[in-house]
């Protein structure tokens, strides 16, 4: 168990190479939650930005409200199934703990759906799907608190990961929350361009494409910066089979390709306001969504590999 190998190269002391930390127990349900929760928060922000008089924006705001509400029911529902004792999910509502992102997140979700529900009902009433008088339960100013809570929900999942002992996540205390926010917003833009692709709303689609470009660009910059910053802590995420998958599906297919496609759409639309390619929009949106899912999956799975490696678990990132 010498500290120095015959070649004179110092090795790191470990206990038979056994993991020093415990692996996260989180599986695909958590990945799906992180993905959907991000899109939910992003939808709330888009709703705030779009809620205006122009026809296309009206449709975006309507879809944004519906999506925010639907996801605020579906996403936590999926999350509950990963618990060891799902029937005790309501024990999370016994306490509020400022130092626990998971506790804050639960209360954030509750507050979000409390606002998203009347907002969606009022929207349905305005569109004639519910009694007219119900439109009063969702005044337009509700969009602001909904968007703020949405921003919180896009953020806290990244903080939740980095506020753990898992070396990769801990090292990403600046980067992981930021890349989660970018990916969430890019995903929301993608979902809503999918929903609007067949409607005649070229201006709205161009706006979503622009937002998507900003978000994907920021995401690529943050991820690349993290690759350098994380060093040996970043290995599970950037190297090996997982790293390759991440590069191909999140960076190349999920960010760079949509950047090119959306960029083309924006330029073409500038030349001719009426022209708009449905297939380009659909492909770009689908790729963005896949990339966003794979980002979450990579974070969770790489976290497990990171926990297994005792050489990075000893001096824990501050």
């Amino acid at each position: 168990m010498a500290d120095v190998l015959p070649g004179g190269e110092p090795t790191k002391t470990t206990y038979y190479g056994r993991p020093l930390l415990k692996r996260p127990h989180w599986d695909r349900t958590v990945t799906i939650y992180l993905f959907l929760g991000g899109i939910m928060g992003g939808s709330a922000i888009l709703t705030l930005l779009a809620d205006g008089e122009a026809a296309g924006e009206r449709r975006l705001a309507r879809n944004g409200k519906y999506a925010s509400f639907l996801l605020s029911v579906v996403a936590p529902g999926i999350l509950v199934t990963h618990l060891g004792r799902p029937e005790r999910f309501h024990h999370m509502m016994r306490v509020v703990k400022v130092k626990s992102p998971m506790s804050l997140g639960v209360w954030g979700l509750i507050a979000f759906s409390t606002i998203a529900a009347p907002n969606a009902v009022a929207e349905a009433a305005r569109n004639g799907h519910a009694p007219r008088w119900l439109s009063a339960v969702g005044p337009r100013w509700l969009n602001l608190p909904m968007a703020l809570l949405g921003a919180f929900i896009m953020s806290y999942t990244g903080v939740l990961l980095s506020a753990t002992a898992i070396p990769l996540w801990a090292k990403g205390k600046y980067h992981i929350p930021a890349m989660s926010v970018c990916s969430a917003l890019a995903g929301a833009c993608a979902l809503h361009s999918l929903l609007l692709a067949r409607s005649s709303a070229p201006e709205t689609l161009t706006r979503l494409a622009k937002m998507g470009v900003f978000a994907s660009l920021a995401e690529v910059v943050i991820v690349e910066n993290f690759r350098h910053y994380a060093g040996e802590f970043g290995k599970p995420m950037f190297e090996g089979a997982l790293g390759q998958r991440f590069r191909n599906l999140t960076l190349l297919a999920g960010s760079v390709a949509p950047l090119v496609l959306n960029g083309t759409s924006i330029l073409k639309n500038r030349a001719n306001q009426r022209e708009h390619s449905v297939s380009r929009t659909l492909v770009s949106a689908a790729l963005t969504l896949i990339g966003g899912y794979v980002l979450r999956e990579t974070l969770i799975e790489a976290g497990k590999l990171s926990a297994d490696d005792p050489t990075v678990s000893s001096r824990q990132p501050r």
Partner: peptide
């Protein structure tokens, strides 16, 4: 060993700035 919760302020600030 590092107390994990100490990383939260950095995370929230970084996410809030990005958002």
């Amino acid at each position: 060993p590092v107390l994990p919760s100490t990383r939260q302020p950095a995370g929230y600030v970084s996410a809030a700035l990005t958002a």
